Amino acid sequence: MTTEDVLTHATLLERQLDDVRLETSAYEAAGTMPVMGRASYLPSFEFSTEGLARSDQFAAWRNSFAAMLELTEVEPTTTDFRGRQKLWDLGSLVLAQISTDSLEFSSLPGHVRRDPVDHWTMTVLLSGQIRTDAARRAYTAGPGEVQIHSLGGCFTGVVDRSEMLILFVPRDLSLETAATLGSAEFSTLSTGMGRLFSDYLVDVANRLPMLTQADLPGLAAATRAMILACVSPSADHIEAAEGPIANVLLERARQLVRNRLLDPKLGSELVRRELGISRTRLYNLFEPFGGVMHYIQHRRLLSAYAALADPKDRRLIFQIAEECGFSDGAEFSRAFKRAFGDSPSEVRNRGGGGIPIRLDLEDCPSEERLGVLLRRLQG
């Protein structure tokens, strides 16, 4: 895809958003906003430390990011800690608008990554500065610049009092984005094209209140196109194309798991043979997910949940468990409850309603919504 193609894609989206804005303005001016139209707008979900006791403010802010980062106050004081989130669920993407006082951050250590969230984050600074240390290198970003992190990698950093937009991009969005972002992870986009992406994301954030669910496929396509055109890794960051190769291998492995999920022979050795790589390479690919078998089991549990939640699927629980690779019913029940918080029979008796991570965000405590959205994005 050429830069011209991307800019054309983005221009079409701009026109679509302008049409929506003009139509909305006309309805509002006439005082005849359709009820169904208003209800279909994309909701946003907010969380703020304002109003909490000072002793609880930073703890609540830290908990809201617990699925992806560990946070530490830079200089704990008796003054308020100010933090505010505004979240949008964009289906295949998540966008967050963040305002925060100064803090330090670090990736989650391996011992807590049993059910890890592993996405790329593209952070656009609106004010303030971020410094990140990763793989023996440090890089900073200021207003208008974009930083790219990999939540499955190892890094630390510090952020000044700042405002920012964070786009969460799942690893399975597409092979092309996986290769592109894999090449540029842990870097700052300070090129002209990087600034173009920054401007694009700011404009999207400004226009989200005018969008509906029907607009999300077009928005996802335009954003993916902008990523492919605007993300160009710096020359000193490319190391023999190792990043793109690893990401292509990971996507092939995920596709293999999806296609053969219910095959009783599916396991780490089968995946390794199909990819034609060493055990060490396979381990490194899936280390952020807790290993190959943990990833396979989690996908199978998701499949089992979907079956149990489907009121039309009347197979017995033990039949679903066996078809999803669990020969021991007690083991299946324990793993299922660890993953979802409910037993298989509780899900079946509830008569459907979807996987817990897909519950209406209105039902979630406000400080847990970011973690829920990121796990939902993980699929």
Rank of each mutant, 00 (worst) to 15 (best):
E75K: 15
A96D: 02
A67C: 00
P116H: 05
R62H: 08
I98M: 09
E176D: 14
A66L: 10
H149N: 14
F186S: 02
D101S: 08
F186E: 00
F155M: 08
A141R: 04
E176Q: 13
A67K: 03
L87V: 08
T121K: 09
L196P: 00
G110I: 11
V169M: 07
L167N: 04
S106C: 08
I98Y: 04
F168G: 03
S190Y: 10
R131S: 09
L151G: 05
S162A: 15
S174M: 08
L196H: 12
F65L: 10
W61P: 00
M68A: 14
L90H: 01
R62K: 13
G182T: 07
I98C: 05
R84D: 05
A141T: 09
E185W: 07
S99V: 14
S107V: 00
G83R: 01
G194S: 05
D118K: 10
A135C: 08
G83V: 00
F155H: 10
Q85Y: 08
E163A: 13
Q129C: 12
S183Y: 01
F168C: 10
M193Q: 15
G153H: 04
A66V: 12
V146S: 10
A66I: 11
D89W: 02
M193K: 15
R84G: 00
T78A: 13
P143L: 09
F105R: 02
R114K: 14
S187C: 02
T140V: 14
M164R: 15
S92K: 14
V74Q: 08
R195N: 08
W88C: 03
L69C: 06
Y200A: 02
V124E: 06
S183D: 07
D118F: 05
G144A: 07
L90E: 00
R82C: 10
R137I: 04
V94F: 01
I130T: 12
W61G: 01
L103R: 12
